[in-house]
């Protein structure tokens, strides 16, 4: 990601400048191909709000590694369970982040990983249930220059 190079270059200059992780001055929540990826995942079905929980910090500490937890309410039985959860980021150069695959053997539809965010944007999770229904949630994460709080 370009942001890594930006940061390294800024540090290499050693100027003590405030590092800019992405262009925060532009539109705060830009758009990429996230909608298309979601449509492909749902087969054009519109997911319902709810059941999905997306936990990310409101303000990222480090755009290169932002902790993210997804969880979906489900009994995770053979009769009723989550099969897949798609995660996209609508402000990165490319929207795709990860897809998690679950089954009743998972016991819980929960996963945590760390992701790269080039700028302030929305993270969107879409869960597919074994009955073919879809649920979604989103969270705005601010990627900031930082350094003036207190």
């Amino acid at each position: 990601m370009t942001l890594i190079l930006n940061r390294r270059q800024a540090l290499a200059v050693g100027a003590g400048a405030i590092v800019v992780l992405g262009g925060t001055a532009g539109p705060a929540f830009a758009k990429n191909d996230s909608d298309d990826i979601i449509k492909k995942f749902t087969g054009n079905a519109t997911p319902q709000q709810g059941r999905v929980k997306l936990d990310l910090p409101e303000i990222a500490e480090n755009g290169n590694t932002v902790p993210m937890t997804i969880s979906v309410e489900s009994p995770m039985t053979a009769q009723s369970h989550v099969t897949d959860v798609l995660v996209v980021a609508d402000g990165n150069p490319r929207a795709g982040v990860a897809t998690f695959h679950f089954s009743p053997a998972s016991g819980a539809a929960e996963a945590n990983t760390r992701i790269r965010l080039a700028t302030s944007q929305n993270i969107i999770a879409v869960a597919k249930m074994n009955d073919g229904s879809f649920f979604t949630a989103s969270k705005a994460v601010k990627v900031t220059i930082g350094g003036c709080g207190g």
Binding site: M1, T65, A89, G96, H101, A105, S106, I115, R116, L117
Partner: peptide, 13 residues
């Protein structure tokens, strides 16, 4: 298999 995931380049180092 009990869990799997596909990662894109947006997953951190």
């Amino acid at each position: 298999e009990v869990f799997s995931a596909d990662f894109e380049p947006a997953v951190a180092a």
